[in-house]
Amino acid sequence: MTVTSTDKDYGALALTLVAHFDAPVHRVWELWSDPRRLERWWGPPSYPATVDRHELVPGGTVTYFMTGPDGAKYHGYWQVLAVDAPRALEFVDGFADADGRPDTSQPAPTCLVSLSEDGGRTRMEIRSRFDTREDMERLLQMGVAEGMAEALGQVDELLAA
């Protein structure tokens, strides 16, 4: 299992997942920067992702959908805030309608991804910051922490290929 810790900090309104991978930072970065690689792990195994648009630059947008076991499509977007390749990425991560427009009725946390070398491995930290405790609790009840851990569990196989 690649996820080494999960921290739910209600005081800071943050969910932080840390994972370690047996690959250099630049290879792990490619899992974010290449839309075909991103869709092979973004989403739990039973909800594979398809990336429609991938503008990984400040001000850019990433749109995608995950297809559930019943065939239903769940759309999402990233509004990219900052990119420091291959070390960091910051984006708003939200739900969207079928046309990629943000669904403002759902929480949209700001995510900060940090990649660093750690003893010959890569340490990835994904920190999601929420606007309110209610937003955080709502997404946690939807299974976001477990879903992200399952998604990250697919990364080792991709890096080995």
Rank of each mutant, 00 (worst) to 15 (best):
A49D: 06
P44Q: 10
M66E: 11
A49M: 09
W32D: 01
T61N: 11
D52G: 12
G68S: 13
R36S: 14
P48S: 13
P45R: 13
P48A: 14
T50V: 11
D70F: 02
M66I: 00
R53F: 00
Y47F: 15
W32E: 07
P45K: 10
G68C: 05
R36G: 08
V62D: 04
P48G: 11
E55W: 09
V62Y: 05
L31H: 07
R36I: 11
W41T: 01
T50K: 10
Y64L: 14
F65R: 12
P58W: 02
H54C: 09
Y64G: 03
P45I: 04
P48T: 13
G59M: 12
T67Q: 04
G43N: 02
P35L: 00
G71Y: 06
P44H: 04
G59R: 04
W41R: 10
E55A: 13
S46V: 06
T63S: 08
T61S: 13
Y64N: 00
G71V: 11
Y47W: 15
M66P: 03
R40E: 15
W42T: 06
D70I: 00
D70Q: 04
P44N: 05
W32G: 09
E39S: 13
T50A: 04
R53S: 06
P69Y: 00
G68Q: 11
T67G: 03
Y47E: 08
P58L: 02
G68N: 03
W42Y: 11
L38N: 04
T63M: 15
P48N: 11
Y64K: 05
G60S: 03
A49K: 01
P58Q: 06
E55I: 13
V51P: 01
D34T: 00
P44W: 07
T61L: 15
R37W: 07
E39L: 09
R40Y: 02
L38A: 13
L38H: 12
S33D: 13
T61Y: 10
